[in-house]
Design a protein around this nucleic acid. Structure first.
Lengths: 240, 240
DNA sequence: AGTATTCGAACGGACGTTCGAACGATTCTT
DNA sequence: AAGAATCGTTCGAACGTCCGTTCGAATACT
């Protein structure tokens, strides 16, 4: 903040000096950027249009992949001109950043609520998994991008998203910590358990098809059943 | 095979007619291409150099991603000229195909051996997971590419790799089928269980670091423990 | 009038791929 | 054994295309 240079990106009309691929990418603004604050939402129209752009980009990035989807594709999908798009973001990378950051921010908030609400750690794990499946089904494109395009961001963009992802992970691991505290000494390691679970959750976009596969409730029941009792007894009820 | 047109790709010196991005991509040769057969391994020198090219490409694709890594990067990494590389493959896509196909082919073979060897389904699941971790640690780049770049292939290339992947999946699901047959009626669904496990296995490249994390044996013990008894009892011994 | 938003047109660069010529080794002919 | 022909292998240079981004002017809104 001291220099006053490059502290205000993402705001309409502000195009920072050209840093063609070289610089270390210190783009995102100072505080809570990526959410709704910090973007100077002058008009409701601006916010609506930005959301439309993000939604179209999300669908495109999800179906073609971030690298293969071009800004020209986004232009075609939104009906906006190539140059007009750059009024809403200052680089393709920021576009990806906004999608990822917002998704992690909102799913983190939902998880925090659950942890606050559920005292029993086993019930809490089930609620967490159920919430993740629900969120996934409501926002398949965003979560697919959060899983698949982790390494497409660099510099500050990467760091900010990585922090949010770590928050989501730490919250999940804390649930396993409590499960393991309750159980005896023959439990799994909480970090590994959380990593294993994250693999499963980050992979569902690869195979889940809404019509064919079970709904979120059934999927969560089976998965939490496995993690709490193993595959052979996954269907038994845990607690009253 | 009937037309005699485009039936022999991947062989040195054979450049099929230009189909710039449009055609449906019916490139891979008739039978068991992608392995060692079908590529007309005239000389040992050719095979060695091809393996060097594949290995360098694998490292590049793994670290930068398939799209971001360019043929010029491969050229730089191998010391060969841009044009010289095309003596060993006919397109960048075929390069990716060869890496993926060979990896799936060899890991499928290892899994078939395990299933033939282990009569107890629970021991078999543990052996499968252990084998996968071992294979991953020995071939991190290849498996990362198999997990991350699934959708980069199209047409026949995609189909051939998808078939191999399905074989690996079906073999794994068959293990869960036997586990569930043995157990009572409160088990998980075998297809879901296999999909959940695949998520975990396909995600390890995102976090596993050889020095920091447990070795393959310990990781397999914990993961199979979870799938057989759940997190709270993952450390208990299953059978004698 | 003044600000917010959109656009057509272009720039420079990176990409995958190809072409024809050359090099090196092996084989064939004499 | 010598020279020519063949084949496998490598290369420099270029082609055409697509990309992300920018500029200054034009339009819409308040």
């Amino acid at each position: 903040m001291g220099t006053g240079v490059g502290t205000s990106i993402g705001k309409p009309g502000v195009k920072p000096g050209a840093n063609p691929g070289s610089g270390s990418g210190k783009k995102p603004g100072g505080s809570a950027d990526g959410g709704s604050a910090g973007r100077r939402a002058r008009t409701a129209r601006y916010d609506e249009k930005l959301n439309a752009v993000l939604s179209a980009s999300s669908a495109l990035f999800a179906s073609k992949g971030y690298e293969r989807a071009s800004i020209r594709d986004v232009s075609r999908a939104t009906g906006m001109s190539l140059a007009g798009l750059y009024y809403y973001f200052s680089s393709k990378e920021e576009l990806l950043y906004l999608i990822q950051y917002r998704a992690f921010e909102s799913i983190c908030e939902e998880l925090r609520k659950i942890i606050k609400r559920e005292a029993d750690p086993q019930v809490c794990l089930h609620a967490m998994i159920k919430m993740h499946f629900d969120y996934f089904i409501r926002n398949m494109n965003d979560l697919e991008i959060c899983s698949r395009e982790i390494e497409a961001l660099k510099g500050e963009f990467y760091r900010k998203v990585a922090d949010k992802r770590k928050e989501y992970f730490d919250l999940t691991q804390s649930i396993f910590d409590r499960i393991i505290d309750t159980a005896g000494g023959a439990s799994a390691d909480s970090r590994l358990a959380a990593l294993y679970l994250f693999g499963t959750l980050n992979w569902i976009y690869q195979w889940y098809r809404p019509g064919r596969d079970p709904d979120a409730g059934e999927m969560a029941r089976q998965l939490s059943g496995i993690y709490l009792q193993g595959v052979p007894r996954a269907g038994e009820v845990t607690s009253a």
